[in-house]
Design a protein around this nucleic acid. Sequence first.
RNA 1: GUGGCUGUAGCUCAAUCGGCAGAGCACUUGACUGUGGAUCAAGAUGUUGCGGGUUCAAGCCCCGUCAGUCACCCCA
Length: 425
Amino acid sequence: MKNIIQPVKGTRDFYPEQMAIRAWLYSILRQVSESFGYQEWDGPFIETMELYAAKSGEELVKEQSFVFQDRGGDFITLRPELTPSLARMIAARQNELAFPVRWWSFGPFWRYERPQKGRTREFFQWNADMLGVNSPEADAELIAVAAAFLKAVGLTPGMALILVNNRRLMEAEFDALGILPEKRLEVSGLVDRSNKMEVDKWEAYALESGLSRTQLAGLKTLLENKELWRKSDELVRLFAALKALGVEDYVRFDPNIMRGLLYYTGTVFEAFDLTGGVRRAILGGGRYDNLLAEVGGEPLSGVGFAMGDVVLGIVLRERGLIPSFPPSPALTLVTVFDESLWLDSYALAADLRRAGIAVTCYPEPAKLPRQFKFADRMGMRVALVIGPDEATDGQVTVKDLRSGTQEIIQRAAVAPAVQRILASE
RNA sequence: GUGGCUGUAGCUCAAUCGGCAGAGCACUUGACUGUGGAUCAAGAUGUUGCGGGUUCAAGCCCCGUCAGUCACCCCA
């Protein structure tokens, strides 16, 4: 223990147990994404620093990304997000792609931040985007994808909701309150924080940032107005589309949702666990209009969202929604009785594999209790024994590990017998 | 980047005022020389994160450092 080299800060080891969960999540993402016709894609895990600097400003990249110089002296960044790669790859094939583009991806990302609950330095993220359509109905589709996912992992509308707002609506309201355009960003940040801070602290903070008392009062009224969405044609259409898509139970209007990102221009949304211990967003996204222009492409509108695996994992664990998987993918063990019968066991295992059964053969003659214990710990269902008695008669002992019953049968009948046990509940 | 808390056996954690480093689970062996889970018995296990300091004596106090964790910040 003492001299084992430490893992890199903020990384997670995926032992088979955790890897099974990751694979399970991946399979659900695939199923949900593909049910809406999204194509899987991926970009490189490393990109030039310029790609991110173009969009987010160099400070952010240098301080919160992993950046290193390659041997040629170029600055390389471990990707902290996927959207710039998406913009770059779309822009490079802008004239040949069949729009609207619907793409999804699941892969690793890195951010050089201080780890805490729900935040690691290496994490996996699911991204889904649609480009080439600018409509509230397209926004609704992405929200429906997100809702379909929540449903697929067992999160009901009582557990998690997608909160929706619209930036254009909020900006119009800010204007109506006499908040100057150059103040919008700061006020957006303020709005974003309104749920996280205590009320009086928040108000003091608001006044400090230059809002008048009337403006503050107006802002508070605004943020409590659950019907505000009716003033936005885009949101009215969005909610109508969500209803048609059958996911309205998962979605609520919430004027507090702004999202920090500069590039969102219209609809924005975030999914939250309603009652759990984590306050962080499970997923978040929105409409962006100018992304491609920033990497040198023609202007193209898009909408998309991203979901990290870390917060989701915490939520699912708290809710008991992560299924358990047997440790071994092979649920059948062929034991090795002794040295003289070793290869008989190997041959039996090979036979069963030819019959399409996943089989582990114990790799050496060991005491049977040890071999059975191994089968038990690996969550196996069937154990097979060829001892001297069985060998003489061309037979095999087949034991159902769950019921504890066993029978001695002819070797040719072993495969069907094993399959029967595996098929039983 | 700022602040709080925590580092003791593989894991979860005890250890009184600074006075012999322990328990449960897991592990190994046996009860049971052809059968796992259950039970019983026995056994093994430590650079108390690391480095320094104070002290007759440090897991405990002090300084530093590393790691974990929580909050702030940020959240692409």
